[in-house]
Amino acid sequence: MKSAPFIAVEGPIGAGKTTLATMLSQELNLPLVKEIVEENPFLASFYQDIDEWSFQLEMFFLCNRFKQLEDTGAHYVQQHSPVISDYHIYKNMIFAERTLKGSKRDKYRQIYHLLTDDLPKPNLVLYIEAELDTLMYRINKRGRSFEQDMDPAYMEQLIADYKTGMAYLADSPNPPIIIKVDAEALDFVEHPEHFRQIVNQVKEYIT
Score class of each variant (00 low, 15 high):
56 Q>Y: 07
169 L>D: 10
143 G>Y: 10
132 L>M: 10
91 K>A: 07
116 T>Q: 04
175 P>C: 15
176 P>M: 06
71 D>C: 04
107 K>V: 05
183 A>G: 12
16 G>C: 12
155 M>Y: 01
28 L>D: 02
76 Y>L: 07
112 Y>V: 01
84 I>L: 13
133 D>H: 10
14 G>Y: 00
66 F>N: 03
181 V>W: 03
21 A>W: 12
41 P>R: 14
169 L>M: 15
19 T>A: 15
176 P>W: 02
58 E>W: 01
21 A>H: 10
87 Y>A: 00
180 K>N: 12
166 M>K: 04
79 Q>W: 02
42 F>E: 09
124 L>K: 06
36 I>M: 12
182 D>H: 13
66 F>Q: 06
179 I>K: 02
126 L>P: 00
58 E>H: 10
13 I>M: 15
14 G>C: 11
188 F>E: 09
41 P>A: 13
98 R>P: 04
176 P>H: 11
100 L>R: 03
109 R>A: 13
4 A>Q: 10
166 M>I: 12
112 Y>H: 03
47 Y>D: 03
89 I>S: 14
103 S>Y: 10
24 L>D: 02
154 Y>T: 09
170 A>Q: 15
16 G>V: 04
154 Y>N: 07
159 I>V: 08
32 L>W: 11
38 E>S: 13
37 V>G: 07
185 A>Y: 09
100 L>C: 03
202 V>T: 08
169 L>V: 10
28 L>K: 02
53 W>D: 12
33 V>G: 04
174 N>Y: 05
111 I>C: 08
113 H>V: 04
150 M>R: 00
29 N>C: 10
177 I>Q: 11
191 H>D: 14
98 R>H: 15
192 P>N: 06
196 R>V: 01
18 T>Q: 09
134 T>P: 08
109 R>K: 12
13 I>S: 14
108 Y>F: 11
40 N>F: 10
107 K>W: 02
81 S>M: 15
80 H>S: 14
156 E>N: 13
32 L>Q: 09
68 Q>I: 00
107 K>T: 08
206 I>H: 07
151 D>R: 05
129 E>M: 06
177 I>T: 14
119 L>I: 08
1 M>W: 03
133 D>I: 04
127 Y>G: 01
